[in-house]
Amino acid sequence: MSFLMLMCCVRETLAQDNYNTEVPKDIIILKSTKDYKNALVTAKQAAARLHKKLDLRGLTPNKKIGLTMSKADCLGSGDGDDLGYPCYTARGDGSAFNDSYISIEYSDAYKGFAKGFYVVVAAITDVKSANMKAQLTRIHKIYPDAYAKRTYIWFGCMH
């Protein structure tokens, strides 16, 4: 085997080792509440006050699991994407990308979070990153109680 082929195999193996795993992330939280309507008011106000996009990701409250995607999204195309209804995929799951928009998430989906809360999220960032610190500094001017909480986001296949 040539050196070049060996290096390609090693790189592919390393890339796979970093896939289908949980990745530590900081989530910037503006508010946690057991009342979805209260979370929605905060999310709408935060989007306007922080000049960030509001993206509720099509999620609606659900008594059984907290939040759910639409029935059509949960049931998928029948090609193995059927998650059953109701279903909820936490923000960032699959890609583990950093992002900066306002959403409402359900705390049960995140490791280390207290259960049963609607969480108004302003961003997902790398742990203790300069980006997280800069965003939190800016957010604190309007939401002094905002904080970053570490959790783990799934990076990999969602089937």
Rank of each mutant, 00 (worst) to 15 (best):
L40W: 02
T42S: 06
T42A: 08
K44T: 14
A46M: 07
A48C: 04
K52M: 14
D55Q: 02
L56D: 10
L56Q: 05
G58T: 11
G58K: 01
P61N: 09
N62Y: 04
N62W: 05
K63L: 02
K63W: 00
K63F: 00
K64C: 01
I65A: 01
G66R: 13
L67I: 14
L67N: 11
T68D: 06
T68L: 03
T68C: 09
T68H: 05
M69K: 10
S70Y: 13
S70I: 14
D73L: 00
D73S: 02
C74D: 05
C74W: 10
L75V: 11
G76K: 07
G76E: 04
S77L: 13
S77V: 05
G78P: 04
G78H: 05
D82G: 10
G84F: 06
Y85E: 04
P86S: 06
P86C: 03
C87D: 03
C87W: 02
C87Q: 02
Y88G: 09
T89N: 07
T89L: 06
A90W: 02
R91H: 08
G92V: 12
G92T: 13
G92S: 07
D93Y: 14
G94N: 08
S95C: 12
S95F: 13
A96T: 02
F97V: 03
D99S: 12
D99L: 10
S100T: 14
I102C: 13
I102P: 00
S103F: 00
I104D: 04
E105N: 03
E105L: 01
S107V: 04
D108V: 12
D108K: 11
D108Y: 11
